[in-house]
Nucleic acid binder design. Structure first.
Length: 453
RNA sequence: GACCCCAUCGUCUAGCCUGGCCUAGGACAUAGGCUUUUCAAGCCUAGAACACGGGUUCAAAUCCCGUUGGGGUCGCCA
């Protein structure tokens, strides 16, 4: 039976890009890796292609199951999914041996003990035979050209029997039918060697796209000492994955125009490799934090409350203590002031408990001669307000009236009340704060100020 | 050192491919102001860049060459 439509579909499908993220499990998913993964993922989703996760664990000493898990966790946190994998190179040894044998048989590779640290023979690739100028067309860099004399014979199979990166990488990219290799710029210099292997095997080469480095404030490759490097650190510090991904994507790529904050969908729609820059970019914590704040503000109340809750818990506050509606209101109150999730518990201890700290500035306000009078005026007005009317809408006129009656500007009354109830001179709007602290606690806190009760 | 890559405000970038609309736009940060119960947010304003030198052209941030500067890689790591 002839099925033209199925055939058409099939061949259309084979044109779809296949990309991979191939981290080495050395401990965690770091910023650079996260962005490389993201670009691959975005590219796959934009083109309707396939995204593959491959674990490059051919180095016997450096890989652990925990490290693999950390990478998977990091990717999931960032909202990435993959269509194939994770494929572990450590499970494909037989295939690497097979290709090695073929190259040796062709005379393109040879056994050697040269440069050996340990006993045993390694298999080296014979560059001399294939030597010529290497040129490739990079999707980000454009034409990249290497002089012909610079590359020397290199090791394919180590004397311990395992393949080296350049070898296993090529075999896997070929076997997995990878069409586009999107990786960090630090891999450019590996490309000529890899190209030689493709040629030696008679394999079609993928397209390459080398994306620029992420640097520290000194313009050097970003590393541990420059600040948080693992994506897990950002999760713990209260960054939203969508904000982190958005910010990171913008390090080296832009959708054009003035667009910065964009949904995942828009990012997928807009992402193309030809808009990736060639220049390294510095990781700017301030801008990340600003963007995170924007994302926090944009979260629906219930969603925000849900994200904040775990951070409350780990700070020793019970997010469920006053009910979900209360927690949502609290979130709304603090969201414009918090740039990260960890700041929520820091800004809200006095809503939960009486053991909050009193900052010097607040103590100062309460120690002023004028404080008791202001507090007494407020206290009288607040005592008279029924519990059922303990809302910002009612508290507002009541307190303003009290200030007027006492012959003072509202600010003169508000600051002492704020200091008495929150222990700080800085808080969200007073009426909203009083509402959430509750009538009973508010009154008690005002009464206990010396000279008032 | 060799090889490779890069070069727009302090930072992220738009513009560059397809020269003219660029007295170079936006964002973060900074400074000042407005608003105001404090803070935050918001709004307004300011300063702030085409690395340098040649060339091509009527015209160059945009194209070419050089210089300088920066980065990456030089492993039986990835």
């Amino acid at each position: 039976m002839f099925l033209p439509s199925a055939l058409t579909q099939e061949s259309a499908m084979s044109d779809k890009p296949r990309v991979r993220f191939a981290p080495s499990p050395t401990g965690y998913l770091h910023i650079g890796g996260a962005r490389t993964a993201l670009y691959n993922w975005l590219y796959a989703r934009h083109t309707g292609g396939t995204f593959i996760l491959r674990i490059e664990d051919t180095d016997r000493e450096r890989h652990t199951p925990e490290a693999v898990q950390a990478i998977i966790d990091g990717m999931k946190w960032l909202g990435m999914d993959w269509d194939e994998g994770p494929i572990h190179q450590s499970e494909r040894l037989a295939r690497y041996q097979e290709v090695a044998a073929e190259l040796e048989k062709k005379g393109l590779a040879y056994k050697t003990t040269k440069g050996a640290e340990e006993k045993g023979e390694a298999l080296a690739f014979r560059v001399a035979a294939a030597q010529e100028k290497v040129v490739f067309d990079d999707q980000v860099l454009g034409k990249v050209e290497f002089q012909d004399e610079v590359i020397e014979d290199f090791i394919l199979m180590r004397s311990n029997g395992w393949p080296t990166y350049n070898f296993s990488c090529v075999i896997d990219d070929h076997d997995m039918a990878i069409t586009d290799v999107i990786r960090g710029l630090d891999h450019v210099s590996n490309t000529p060697r890899q190209l030689m292997i493709y040629k030696a095997m008679g394999w079609e080469t993928p397209r390459f796209a080398h994306i620029p480095m992420i640097t520290n404030s000194e313009g050097k490759k970003y590393s541990k000492r420059d600040g948080a490097v693992a994506v897990g650190d950002y999760a713990n510090a209260g960054y939203l994955p969508e904000a982190f991904a958005n910010y990171t994507a913008l390090l080296g790529w832009s959708p054009g125009g003035d667009l910065e904050i964009m949904s995942r969908e828009v990012m997928v729609e807009k992402f193309t490799l030809d808009r990736v820059r060639k220049t390294a970019s510095q990781f700017d914590f301030q801008k990340l934090e600003w963007m995170n704040g924007k994302y926090i503000e944009g979260l629906p109340a219930a969603e925000l409350a849900g994200r904040v809750a775990p951070f409350m818990k780990s700070a020793g506050l019970d997010p469920d203590a006053r009910g979900s509606e209360w927690l949502e209101k609290l979130g709304q109150l603090l969201k414009e002031r918090a740039h990260t999730l960890v700041q929520f518990p820091k800004l809200s201890r006095y809503f939960f408990a009486d053991d909050y700290e009193v900052v010097p500035q607040a103590a100062e306000i309460l120690a002023k001669d004028t404080a008791p009078a202001a507090l007494k005026a407020a206290l009288g007005a607040l005592e008279a307000l029924p519990e059922a009317e303990w809302t910002p809408a009612k508290l507002d006129p009541v307190l303003r009236e009290a200030a007027k009656a006492a012959g003072m500007g509202f600010g003169k009354l508000a600051q002492p009340v704020r200091a008495a109830v929150t222990g700080t001179n800085v808080s969200p709007g007073l009426f909203e704060v009083l509402e959430l602290v509750g009538k009973e606690r508010t009154l008690a806190r005002i009464r206990r100020v010396p000279g008032v009760g």
